[in-house]
Design a protein around this nucleic acid. Structure first.
Lengths: 343, 343
DNA sequence: TTTAGCACTCATTACCTTCAAGTGCTAAAC
DNA sequence: GTTTAGCACTTGAAGGTAATGAGTGCTAAA
């Protein structure tokens, strides 16, 4: 797909004007906007060609032109000039991260919230746990007479705990016995190997204690599963309601984003650095009128995550892409530090 | 406000028919619906009186009548017959609770989700921590060379933990020292007394260790604050989008519910068993066209929570009120068991 | 290749009419 | 006194028509 210089400028101008106003753009407006000298008629000719190429659309004969999803694709791939983040904005973003709590579990959801607030889009953040993460240690802490806290620590620094009520009196002996037993069977195992079936098989090998320990082992399974599933959160859903052009679609889109398994789909396989998918490229009914900007980030050597933005096709890509990348970089640094793999 | 028998029946019929259809109800329809024999003209006379009393409204002269918020108030207080939950529904609700994870922290959010799914409204659940809850114990668990897990256990069974990276090598001695120090100063104190200022004062009294322990003490403060703040979660926001009559208001309402401090307001002071507020009774712009059903529940002797439902004024009160009450009862039982106060 | 000119298209708006639902009032019936 | 039938009246919704104007596509000249 080759476009001569003027057509490129015209397409770029139409997209940027449409992004700004949300209204179809006419030849006259472009003529006054462009720095090149060309009459509206000339521009009309070029617009007709861009239309034939599928880069523009026409709501109806007597309206101006609107960029098609293909037009946006061309713009993102060839025309867009990313606008660098100003030091002021950088400081603002850093401040958001700094005032927040440094708890890794929260960092992700706070970042999503901040990103959503900042971009007025829906922000999704997630992490995945790769198979090489191991169970490092299992700890049992007596909390009260018949209550223990069970804690799973993974090799990548992830920690999950749960309060467990048990049917027996919690003595130092029992705790020690169980801790030894659990660590002997589970520590060093890959976290994604801890299946429900494996835990079941363990329950029977505790001998006399089978009944007593079942609930503890089940809790360990849940905790491992939580670590293995990674984190996932969606913020700023209500932001979508502010876009007039989405009012017919936002309901379905919001319902879809509300379903975790559907929302995870749109993050893709994480096999990219930055990925922008426009409208129908998303292969999903609900996203046919939305765009998704996804960025991958690393957390230390053994874990990675995805940060994504869902918003109207008419998104300020040149501004938002550098922003989400900066968010991802900050998150990467902070989480890598917080969860650094240790000997 | 006294209404004769027929007027009561007419008001009840109008409200129930309007709740069902969402359309203004005319005198003819009521005549065919009512079991009492009365002509449309008679009903029209009564409707005119109900209208004068402020219990009905008229969208325009040639339309039927619509219940006013005052009409709903009268209905809820005097006319409504709560429909008991069927054993089948009870079983369905119990099943929801059973298949879910028994973790107390999750129970609340799962219950809100289930309630939202069940009622097609927004569900809010929250717990508050009363001042008599104490810090029972603080535990420090070494997780890796420079990483510890810090854990606060409260007298009401609440447990919160956080991973902390520290600047020193974690030895058994240091852990013991810090655990002793922290417990000496904090255990037994009321959880809401652990202020930022108090923690600050502690940091200086650790002597040589001031710098090393600052991050740990800050973490303790956060954890106490989390316990003291209780839990709060909102689920099913997108449900509101399904109501045609709310399409003009749902945007503002959703934005408001998205703000925690605003959403907390509408739970009220918890000084009630069941509370229904209709439309303008809510004293909030955004809720002027919505109703809130709030139920209080107890968690053991020392903690209570609120479960609330936000939906259209045209809500199926007779069905939903018993349902949310049943949810609250279930929650109360399960949480009381899970978090029972212990010696 | 570019541009001016002009006929043409079509959404939007305003205005009008018709239609139907439902009311309020009056006078008769119970 | 209460209830009811009858009927004029009101009003939003739906449908049709005309005027408006923004913006196009095409043609022919520059």
């Amino acid at each position: 797909m080759e476009l001569d210089n003027r057509k490129q400028k015209i397409l770029k101008a139409i997209i940027e004007e449409y992004t700004r106003t949300g209204e179809p753009v006419g030849s006259k407006r472009i003529a006054s906007l462009l720095d090149i000298v060309a009459s509206p008629a000339t521009i009309r000719n070029d617009m007709a060609i861009l239309f034939d190429m599928g880069l523009l659309e026409q709501p109806h004969t007597s309206a101006g032109r609107v960029p098609s999803h293909m037009g946006y694709r061309y713009y993102i791939d060839h025309l867009m000039v990313p606008s660098p983040i100003s030091p002021k904005e950088m400081a603002a973003i850093e401040a958001m991260f700094n005032v927040r709590d440094p708890d890794p579990d929260r960092l992700l959801s706070d970042a999503a919230q901040a990103l959503a607030d900042y971009t007025h889009c829906v922000a999704i953040s997630s992490t995945t746990t790769p198979p090489e993460v191991l169970v490092r240690h299992i700890e049992l802490i007596p909390a009260a007479e018949r209550t223990v806290i069970i804690m799973v620590i993974a090799s990548n620094g992830a920690v999950k705990s749960r309060v467990c009520r048990v049917d027996f009196e919690v003595t130092k002996n029992i705790c020690e016995f169980f801790t030894n037993f659990a660590n002997a069977r589970l520590a060093g195992k890959s976290i994604n190997e801890i299946s429900s079936a494996y835990i079941n098989s363990l329950t029977f090998s505790v001998g006399d204690y089978t009944e007593v320990f079942t609930s503890l082992l089940t809790a360990i399974y849940s905790l491992c599963k939580e670590i293995n599933d990674g984190q996932f959160c969606t913020r700023g859903m209500t932001n979508l309601l502010a876009y007039d052009e989405m009012k017919d679609f936002s309901k379905d889109l919001l319902l879809m984003l509300g379903k975790k398994e559907r929302a995870i789909e749109l993050l893709g396989d994480g096999n990219f650095d930055v990925r922008v998918t426009v409208g129908k490229e998303n292969n999903s009914m609900e996203l046919a009128n939305a765009s998704v900007v996804a960025v991958r980030y690393n957390i230390g050597p053994s874990r990675c995550g995805t940060l994504a933005l869902v918003g109207p096709v008419r998104m300020e890509y040149p501004k938002l892409i550098p922003h989400i990348e900066y968010f991802a970089r900050m998150l990467s640094e902070l989480l890598s530090e917080a969860m650094r793999e240790q000997p």
